[in-house]
Each structure stands twice: as C-alpha cells, then as structure tokens.
C-alpha cells in the first residue's frame, strides 16, 4: 500500500486535479505506488516520502539520531 511509502501533506487526504495526470484521490488506499512515486519525483507538494519509502523505493537507509552511549559511572 502506497501509504507506507508516502504521507499526505498540506491537504486533507482527498481529490486533487493534477495536470498531466488527472484527478488523484489521496484518500484512496489503492493508488499505485508507481503513480505516487512519479508524482513525488515531479515535486508534488502533497506527498512526503516516509523512511520506509526512502528505503524501499530508493534503497536509502535512514540515519536515525542515535544517542551516544552513556558512560557508566564507576562506583
């Protein structure tokens, strides 16, 4: 499902007419991942990629903020 890979931003999920594509309903869970990826790559301002999408579609792993290990106090 595309919603694992992209998050809808700037609008309440619902229909938008996107020129060159037609009406895209961002509340429809059955949208194809290919379509969403194409829109995302065309700078669609309603889609934000998730960490999982970045990893799955672009093979990039997310660097999470890891805390430096605490030094143990010696008693």
């Amino acid at each position: 499902m595309w919603t694992k890979y992209f998050k809808v931003v700037n609008i309440v999920p619902g229909p938008v007419i996107i020129q060159g594509t037609g009406t895209v309903d961002f509340s429809d869970p059955t949208l194809s991942v290919d379509l969403c990826q194409k829109l995302f790559e065309n700078d669609c301002r309603y889609l934000q990629i998730t960490d999982e999408g970045r990893e799955k579609l672009y093979g990039k792993t997310t660097t999470k903020n890891k805390r430096a290990p605490r030094s143990r106090k010696k008693n």
Binding site: V16, I18, Q19
Partner: peptide
C-alpha cells in the same frame, strides 16, 4: 495555468 486544483481542504500547518 499548469498548476493543481485542490478539491479537498488544505490542512492546517
């Protein structure tokens, strides 16, 4: 005009 037509409400930022 080559932009989008939002037929759903804009979300609050």
């Amino acid at each position: 005009y080559e932009g989008d037509i939002p037929l759903t409400p804009a979300a609050s930022v």
